[in-house]
Design a protein around this nucleic acid. Structure first.
Lengths: 145, 145
DNA sequence: TATTGTTATACTCTATAACTATA
DNA sequence: TATAGTTATAGAGTATAACAATA
């Protein structure tokens, strides 16, 4: 075991994923931070609302695999900045429906455009089919465990 | 741009990488934390010393893409636990050479064995060639930007 | 009793500047 | 002046328990 040659920890998947995630996130992180003063979880909530239009915190939690406390704080800050509005549900008053404001949508559109360019630059020179396979594999890993 | 249909932020690579990294790291994190009270950067320094036997902090920094302050603190805690020893360089007394102790190597061997099993479980059912390609792609993304 | 969302708290992780001791 | 490594500090990110309001 001490001399087991057939496993190199440098190729340990969680390690490689972390390195790749960190390196690939850095520049984009600066964009939503410097331009809009947003944190990562706020960007995540924002883009989910950008896609699904109207969601509750619980729904975002399921989709984004985020704990409710993260969402609660992200929503609060996004509401302060007038990027979203909250509407109490009429039937179940524990629930809040969330939607982007016009301003929030502008921010989303801007960031989505930048994300798109950024994404393309990351996989530059990589055949489209490989990109698709990579993303599918990452989705599978994210769901696993 | 508002209605640009050809980019779905859910497939944004930094996002997918982060989700996959986080999900895939969780269980293993518990092992080095609960069993040895180690933090992530300590595990990283430990396994680099496990592989390269004798390194300076700067060398680890280059290999692992870690800032010197992270290494400094990780080394300190590993030294406190007697997992490594530090030796001043004779020629240049600013430099310290780091090596695992017998205890440190035991810990490394244990964690490496667990990492191996863990890694295999993560890619279970995936053809070996695809695993290799995935890891190569992640290494490339980690080096980029 | 269970669920939606909030608040409090502690810990982990990162980034940066300022420092020391050597060179 | 520059480099190897340390210390201080603030901010970002996570995890968990306890809570209020509602069902």
């Amino acid at each position: 075991m001490h001399d087991d040659p057939d496993f190199d920890v440098r190729g340990f998947l969680p390690y490689l994923l972390n390195q790749a995630a960190e390196a690939s996130s850095l520049d984009f992180q600066k964009v939503y931070k410097d331009r809009y003063g947003m944190l990562r979880n706020e960007w995540r909530v924002l883009f989910h609302l950008g896609i699904y239009t109207r969601m509750t915190a619980s729904e975002i939690g399921e989709r984004a695999q985020m704990h409710k406390t993260k969402i609660s704080r992200a929503v609060q800050r996004l509401a302060e900045r007038r990027y979203l509005i909250r509407q109490r549900d009429g039937d179940d008053r524990r629930v809040e429906h969330l939607e982007l404001t016009a301003l929030g949508r502008k921010v989303y559109d801007d960031l989505r455009g930048i994300a798109k360019d950024y994404d393309m630059a990351l996989v530059e020179g990589m055949p489209q089919a490989e990109v698709e396979r990579l993303k599918t594999q990452l989705e599978a890993l994210a769901r696993r465990s």
